[in-house]
Amino acid sequence: MNAIEIEHISKNYKTVSAVKDISLSVKEGEIFGLIGPDGAGKTTLFRIMTTLMLADAGKGRICGFDIVKDYAQIRQIIGYMPGRFSLYQDLSVQENIDFFATMFGTTLQDNYETIREIYSQIEPFRKRKAGKLSGGMKQKLALCCALVHKPSVLFLDEPTTGVDAVSRKDFWNMLYRIKASGVTVFVSTPYMDEAGLCDRMALIRQGNIIDTGTPAEIVAKYPYALLAVKGTPMYPLLKELRKLDGVISCFSFGDSHHLAYDPAKTQKENILAAAVAAGFKDCTAWEIKPGIEDCFMQLSEQ
């Protein structure tokens, strides 16, 4: 049985349609990533799956329970960490955990083992008010609160947004350990570099799922050859490269441009020569393997 199964889910806010005809299935015990930019409809989808919101159309099941009819059962077995820090800022770390444990009919002592690894990191601050914690600490506390009742499915809405790189890495390590204990994890993120860390993922854009699969599958589907190109000045170079024959697309990626081209029409040498001919200095180009972000860009173009 799949842990999450949704079919043809749609949701409109007045005139804006946030989620359009989305179908997904998530296997038990995997980390499933929902990858997409801000405003793609990720939070809406989370709220529909966590029974906080009703979809306009479509149906869904979490561990076999219907997301509309059996909402009470679903609320027993899921853990949810909203995108915004949503704990009581005026309560201490300990009080927050105790409160949420009791709400889910359990206690911190009973489930100490489940969250021990994460909780041990914030335990020294257990008397501190949640509002006075650092960003990374807050996120660990929120995760503890979402995990304290041993949920079967854990929903994490953009857990790493606004968290520094080291804490993000830590966080993903925690997710692997949570997964190892048998929990299905459904996580969303706007960061493409985190996509590769998921077992499987879906790319979402403007309320549509544009692709699903393992990171390897999605990358393998990339239809073009890819070059990283550098040269001075960078921005005019980008415009110049886009004009070239055989170039499908060209985007700025940090310190280089990623250029997709059709190998049947042009070659790396041609592109480099054209750039030099146009008067750009220090031009270099090298073949690269496409990443998730390249795939997202390419799929968005269609």
Binding site: R84, S86, Y88, M103, F104
Partner: peptide
């Protein structure tokens, strides 16, 4: 406003 209602509603209470 603070979003804690979301968590309360998701709980079995």
């Amino acid at each position: 406003e603070t979003g804690t209602m979301e968590l309360l509603l998701v709980s079995p209470v």
